[in-house]
């Protein structure tokens, strides 16, 4: 591939190039993919894949060891009445809850993810944010979700935004780093595309849409946009980066349309928990009710799934 002005470097002199994004056409493409019809066997497969890719999340100031234990149980056995239903990928909690989550999930295959780095705003001193990450890793978190420094990014200090992610990656050690772009705050698909490339170039293992703390979150065009960035990054560097949608994903239909978008953009190889995650809480029960409908032919209700 030839270097060209179409692919402006996003990092200081780095090899990574990005492309402009046309909002209307991007949204039209995402809408077209959302008309894909998923029936019978592929529906069950899609629902199971959805569960296997969920980061079952609780990020509240009111979280307690009891709440986290209950969540972990749900993560391990989402439907106690149906052993064919797989576990979710991970539970996602605040650093203070990590040890409780680790205790509840050890040996189950469910990973523990922790937000860190002064989540959700990230507006603490760099050293404090790094310390937060180190702390979470020390408590046993195998995955760390941090936020992009939007303040640096939007003020044009791309170098700082990049270097802070690189520092976070160092602090993670062997733990995986997910970088939350908080797409709803970046103002355009162009900016998200640029931020995606920047985060990947800085060492992110996953790029993630949102914190879940603001209303505009993981929309289908946004997932498409970021999937395209991941594909471009893989084309340019050979490095595989994962994608996590989070925030506002509540229904099975939303989730499997995300699968369609990722599958048709990045290929089926991306439809595994190693490369794709859905950060969610209420989504899981909607998926379970859909599975019950497939099994029984009847529509289920919230009383037939556990609250957590």
């Amino acid at each position: 591939m030839t270097a060209s002005p179409a692919f402006l470097p996003t990092t200081g002199g780095g090899p990574v190039r990005t492309t402009p994004v046309d909002a209307v056409a991007l949204e039209a493409r995402a809408a077209a993919l959302c008309t894909r019809s998923i029936k019978t066997t592929s529906k069950r497969a899609a629902l199971h894949t959805t569960i296997r890719c969920i980061d079952l999340t609780t990020l509240e100031g009111t979280d307690t060891p009891g709440k986290v234990a209950s969540l972990c149980q749900k993560a391990i056995k989402p439907d106690p009445s149906d052993p064919t239903v797989p576990s979710v990928a991970a539970v996602c909690v605040y650093p203070e809850m990590v040890e409780h989550a680790v205790e509840a999930t050890t040996g189950t295959g469910v990973a523990v993810a922790s937000v860190a780095g002064a989540f959700p705003a990230g507006m603490s001193a760099p050293a404090v944010r790094v310390a937060d990450i180190v702390d979470a890793v020390g408590r046993g978190a195998g995955e760390i979700d941090i936020v992009l420094n939007r303040s640096a990014f939007l003020s044009g200090d791309l170098g700082r935004a990049h270097d802070e992610i690189a520092a976070a990656k160092d602090a993670c050690g062997a733990s995986h780093l997910k970088v939350i772009l908080e797409t709803g705050e970046l103002g355009s698909y162009d900016q998200v595309r640029r931020a995606s490339m920047l985060a990947m170039a800085a060492g992110a293992d996953f790029i993630k849409t949102s914190t879940g703390k603001i209303p505009k979150a993981a929309t289908h065009p946004m997932i498409l946009n970021m999937a395209e960035a991941i594909r471009d990054y893989a084309d340019q560097t050979g490095v595989v980066v994962g994608l996590k949608g989070a925030g506002g994903i509540r229904t099975s239909k939303q989730a499997w349309h995300h699968l369609v978008i990722v599958g048709e953009t990045l290929g089926s190889a991306w439809l595994t928990p190693e490369r794709f995650r859905l950060g969610a809480s209420s989504l899981l029960n909607d998926v379970l009710m859909q599975l019950q409908k497939l099994d029984t032919g009847r529509y289920s209700g919230p009383d037939y799934v556990t609250v957590d």
């Binding site: 002005p5 179409a6 492309t19 402009p20 994004v21 056409a25 991007l26 039209a28």
Partner: peptide
């Protein structure tokens, strides 16, 4: 053109 939104151009 090389300064196009390439993915949308492909789609178009």
């Amino acid at each position: 053109f090389e300064d196009s939104a390439v993915d949308q151009a492909v789609e178009g």
